[in-house]
């Protein structure tokens, strides 16, 4: 279960980091000369970084291997008695 969760989480984190990279790219390349970076931009960058770090910690805190596997329908099926 841990391996599956890790793969899904890494895909999610990669997409999220692509968004983060896009924000920093825009701020670096498309700023208007002489204009100050707005507070909301700093807050966005900081909160994105913090949430990514918290998510890594939260992911490691989950005991993935204790999650019960869903039972397959074929094993739990009991044929009707005639």
């Amino acid at each position: 279960m841990f391996t599956i969760a890790l793969i899904i989480y890494l895909v999610f984190l990669t997409v999220y980091l692509a968004f983060f990279w896009a924000l920093t790219y825009h701020l670096r390349n498309y700023y208007i000369p002489g204009e100050r970076l707005p507070v909301i931009a700093r807050a966005l960058v900081l909160s994105m970084m913090l949430l990514a770090a918290f998510s890594v910690v939260a992911f490691m805190a989950v005991p993935w291997d204790t999650i019960p596997k869903p039972s397959s329908p074929s094993t739990s099926f009991t044929p009707p008695t005639l």
Binding site: L51, S55, V62, P68
Partner: peptide
Amino acid sequence: IGVELALPLITFLTICFWMVILAFFLVAWV
């Protein structure tokens, strides 16, 4: 699923949900 599993799982999923919302907001703000 039990408290030992539920609480860390809820915390993790909540943070992931906030990350998605933040990404949506980022697109709107840009």
